[in-house]
């Protein structure tokens, strides 16, 4: 896929997702919704990175045996994909820890509303 409309779509979609996630994280009062906003934000950053790997008319970065001298222009950039695999794992781990905290908070306090929890924190 080529063309400037793809670029436009890519940058604006990832940017939009980032902003949606950021707003959700900051504004939502319920902890699980905050977590969802966080996940959306992380995912948008991952997709942004992946877009950096694209090359026109290039194929997946798997070198078949019958290509002894791979040309850099024939395969997409493998580095952002490798980095983002790590970033995805980091995101999943963080969500796991966040869910553990949410579970513990709910078991003890009975509520997951940020405002109620903050008042309990202050008392």
């Amino acid at each position: 896929m080529t063309g400037t409309w793809v670029a436009w779509l890519h940058y604006w979609l990832t940017g939009g997702l980032l902003l949606v996630g950021l707003y959700g994280m900051l504004a939502a009062p319920h902890l699980v919704r905050k977590l969802m906003g966080m996940n959306i934000m992380q995912t948008s950053i991952i997709i942004f990175f992946l877009g950096l790997a694209a090359k026109t008319d290039a194929t997946l970065p798997i070198v078949p045996t019958d290509d002894p001298a791979p040309a850099a222009a024939a395969y997409i950039n493998p580095l952002p994909h490798a980095l983002m695999l790590t970033a995805i794992v980091v995101g999943v781990s963080t969500s796991g820890v966040a869910l553990a905290l949410i579970l513990r908070i709910h078991r003890h306090f009975g509520t997951l509303d940020e405002r109620d929890l903050l008042s309990k924190l202050r008392e």
Partner: peptide, 17 residues
């Protein structure tokens, strides 16, 4: 403490940002 879990969650959100 139990209240520390709330503090930790707030830190988690900001730290992930």
């Amino acid at each position: 403490s139990e209240r520390a879990t709330i503090a930790s969650f707030r830190y988690l959100l900001l730290g992930t940002v």
